[in-house]
């Protein structure tokens, strides 16, 4: 049992910051503040999902951008047809988030199920490579979709609609994304502490022991992989609605790498660390790009320093510290 619940305290502080920060930043007159925080929260959703399998299950997916892109493309493509008046397999389409988003998430779950099933036949470096390979396949598939813009990507003329929330209002979109992030973090926290999560973590710590307890590894790992894919897909959906634009870039290996870097930066296996990682990474990117186009020249060494000296990322040591005697 954790003594002081560092997770709850850190989570609350983060939540208050994320609620107030954009208001404060925009008050100072900088209107880039709200989009910046929207990007941070959307990325946070993706990297929290990735942390669930990397941090707790040591399933190092180097292909999570494929779920990010699939979520985004699903809603963008469906919106495209709906607005053009084309039938989609005889269906007139819809712009309602309550119809499109579950469909997009279902697609992510199915892709996660198939790719997870195949990739989980392997371990370690092979798992990294096979997830990367599948993500590259998705990337080239998107590039080849000339009808949907190919290389140039696909514009989304209108955002999805929601009964209560006006997604065209950037403030509503931000707080909706934040709300989804909060629910998702709590959900992941439940999973991690649940019967399922205990077995899943046991498998990472000692697979031989877990097997000798009667555990069949595949269903546990596959379930976590699919949950992670769905969360990352949700981030993609929000991204499409934020940017009103999807491109194959969403599926590049560089994007997958960014997600991995953010998780590591923030602290593996902490759920909250990656949120701080996302804020630091995207915040730094924003600041450095104002200063120079070659922002990676600075970002690179920063990442190296954190990897070297903050062995458990920004929050890893703190969040894991209070747990045991």
């Amino acid at each position: 049992m954790p003594k002081p619940d560092r997770f709850a305290i850190t989570g609350l502080i983060m939540l208050v910051l994320l609620i107030l920060a954009p208001i404060v930043v925009v008050q100072t007159g900088w209107h880039g503040g709200l989009p910046l925080f929207t990007r941070i929260v959307i990325y946070a959703l993706a990297v929290v999902s990735l942390d669930l399998i990397i941090g707790y299950g040591a399933l190092i997916s180097f292909g999570h951008a494929m779920f990010f892109s699939l979520g985004g493309y699903m809603v963008a493509i469906l919106a495209h047809h709906t607005n053009a008046g084309d039938l989609i397999f005889g269906w007139a389409g819809s712009n309602s988030a309550f119809i499109l988003w579950p469909l997009a998430l279902l697609a992510c779950a199915l892709l996660g199920l198939v790719i997870g099933y195949l990739a989980l036949k392997t371990r370690g470096v092979q798992f990294i490579m096979i997830t990367l390979a599948f993500a590259q396949m998705v990337y080239f598939l998107l590039v080849s979709l000339q009808y949907y813009g190919g290389d140039d990507g696909l514009m989304m003329d209108t955002r999805n609609t929601m009964a209560v929330v006006d997604l065209d209002n950037p403030w509503s979109l931000y707080y909706l994304a934040l709300g989804i992030l909060v629910i998702w973090v709590l959900f992941c926290r439940f999973i991690v502490n649940s019967r399922f999560g205990m077995v899943f973590q046991g498998l990472r710590q000692s697979e031989r022991r877990a097997i000798n307890l009667g555990v069949n590894p595949l269903p546990f790992r596959l379930t976590a992989f699919v949950i992670s894919a769905v969360g990352t897909g949700m981030a993609g959906i929000l991204w499409a609605n934020y940017a009103q634009f999807v491109t194959p870039d969403m599926a590049t290996w560089a994007k997958s790498g960014e997600f991995m870097a953010i998780v590591t930066l923030g602290g593996l296996g902490t759920l909250l660390g990656p949120i701080a990682g996302a804020a630091a990474f995207i915040g730094l990117e924003q600041i450095l790009t104002i200063w120079t186009e070659h922002w990676m020249i600075v970002m690179g060494p920063v990442l190296v320093l954190i990897a070297l000296f903050g062995q458990q990322g920004m929050l890893g040591r703190f969040l894991k510290g209070g747990r045991h005697d």
């Binding site: 399922f196 077995v199 069949n216 269903p219």
Partner: peptide, 14 residues
Amino acid sequence: DCMGGGSFNLFANP
């Protein structure tokens, strides 16, 4: 807890 092969209960904390 793993006697039957482990539980898929995502919410109960053992």
